[in-house]
Design a protein around this nucleic acid. Structure first.
Lengths: 331, 331
DNA sequence: ATGAAAGCGCTAACAA
DNA sequence: TTGTTAGCGCTTTCAT
């Protein structure tokens, strides 16, 4: 079979404990011995078995991350942030897509717990009591990335979605005529709610009416953005601007409007959300809310490492700064 | 601590072997006993420890996948294909980004081997002898996805890049005036070579000269596509069409041309490669080579499961079909 | 159909 | 500084 710590010990004339020490960089080894051991490790091509180590030490140095969809432009950027920090701290990462399906999410949590991951970063629509209960069946720390938790008990990293949406809508109100429309995500998630709330607050503070026909539901996809804008433009008095809750839908909205012969931003201003790479890959370039996705991932993972090390954490709910960026799809 | 198989055995008045049998769906258990065991598993909330199982059985049911960059639109689509099939066959997936950095790739392979993964799906620029040697230090099967291997020894799933490029270039030759230009990837990978070869073959078979100034190197990024097209358009006799080796660069090329006042496709036709979602998220929509990314991932993983099960595999190098799709950026 | 017992390869006291 | 020795929680013969 494979070379084990035993083989190395025998060949180097030391005990397995000593080999274990040098592999784990324990300082209590005489330099000469260390050298000898290292040499025979090299010679035999010994590779420590992480599974055995995991069983003995009760630590696997792997973290689980649950993501709605790896192939999503938005979430994969988050995943990269998580991964980079995980790598930095020498953790492996098990990655699974949930499609925001609750059953699947629960199932994945369970599987990851079986795998004895040392921690979990969770991204999803909303975390419910059931999620929390599932998490609680084990004692591994969990951090939510760009995800809200109805129980408000789990550490998380987010931006202030309500404020961001408020600012974006305000921008539209100040730079375009009339009442801005809103293309929401189809999901009835907390984040979706916050965005809606920010939109409505901006209107009401500006003494503008919330018109039901100006609020249309998309599904975060390009096509749904296109469909939504067409509905809006077919109205008797179409809006002069629209706040769209994701960049991808915003691109759909821009192209949908253009396909109908409208000029963006002259006839209709479009404001996105996220600032994914798509925002600059469209003409006109997209004004949008900057959500620091990579950072959210990175900070989440960093936070998780602290929990895994049982360090004290001052703030369990971190809110990262956001800002709006003005490009050419508005004004 | 946690509930172990011992606890269940004791509570159910059976041996741990029996518990193990019911957990593993071994048929040699009397229905009554099974029921009893299942009940106490439920009651105690027992969750099998996958690490212990892995140590005892020498199988972890996890596969490693190495990807250049999770946040890449192209590769993350592949990853989703891999993941879906992995899930279907009950494998976990460890995912790591390599940035196409050889040292990092070698390092990741090593780490994954330590983790005792049952198999590896590798995506990257080119697989060298060193990669192969590293793979060989263990006996886990490896499959390359959308990746070429200089030693031609490792199972892989690809499309015929040379033929695809040939066809795309031919299309340009037949539908646009003059000699098509070519924006390549910066990488000197085998796939890059194949694309170049296909491009050149199309020209030579059409009795057209290969002009050095018409071949410019990009880096697969949007910006590099933009930069490249500007170089091309600044030539004394700019090309009337350009074949671009990735969709993302092609978008950059389209916008770069448009920003300079050129009309796509009238003044210059643009042909992409990959058919990522971007291809329809641009105006004019992008004519491109359809590379079935999800399928490449899925087939790779399926192939890997066969190797892991030690099934016989007829064809170790699978070539998936490709096609070109005509949209509005050409003709 | 069920149980006993020997590992799997390593870590982590504890001893020396 | 080094070695001895229990486990870690499970699978897997081998008996019964």
């Amino acid at each position: 079979m494979n070379i084990t710590i035993y083989d190395v010990a025998r060949e180097a004339n030391v005990s397995m404990a000593t080999v274990s020490r040098v592999v784990n960089r324990n300082p209590n080894v005489k330099p000469v011995t260390r050298k000898k051991v290292l040499a025979t490790i090299e010679r035999l091509g010994y590779r420590p078995n992480a599974v055995a180590r995991g069983l003995a030490s009760k630590k696997t140095t792997t973290v689980g991350t649950i993501i709605p969809d790896v192939s999503s432009i938005f979430f994969s950027e988050l995943a990269r942030g998580i991964e980079d920090i995980a790598t930095m701290y020498n953790y492996n990462m098990i990655l699974s897509s949930s499609d925001q399906n609750k059953e699947k999410e629960l199932q994945l949590i369970n599987t990851m717990l079986e795998t004895q991951v040392d921690g979990i970063v969770f991204m999803g629509g909303t975390v419910t009591k059931e999620h929390v209960e599932e998490f609680a069946t084990s004692h591994v720390p969990v951090v939510l990335a760009a995800t809200q938790d109805v129980t408000e008990t789990i550490p998380s990293v987010n931006i202030d979605y309500e404020a961001a949406s408020y600012e974006a809508t305000m921008y539209l109100i100040n730079n375009h005529k009339g009442i801005p429309a809103f293309i929401s995500g189809r999901d009835h998630t907390m984040i979706g709610d916050y965005k809606m709330r920010g939109y409505k607050r901006a209107l009401s503070e500006s003494h503008l009416d919330v018109k039901d026909t100006y609020i249309v539901e998309g599904s975060y996809s390009y096509d749904s953005g296109m469909k939504a804008i067409k509905e809006l433009l077919a109205l008797d008095t179409p809006p002069k601007s629209v706040f769209v809750s994701s960049d991808e839908m915003a691109l759909g909205a821009i192209h949908g409007a253009q396909d109908k012969g409208y000029n963006v931003p002259k006839d209709i201003g479009v404001f996105g959300f996220d600032n994914t790479r798509l925002a600059t890959m469209v003409r006109p370039t997209l004004s949008t809310v900057v959500q620091p996705m990579y950072d959210i991932g990175a900070v989440s993972m960093r936070l998780l490492t602290k929990f895994m090390n049982k360090e004290d954490v001052e703030e369990k709910k971190v809110i990262l700064p956001h800002r709006i960026i003005e490009r050419h799809s508005t004004k």
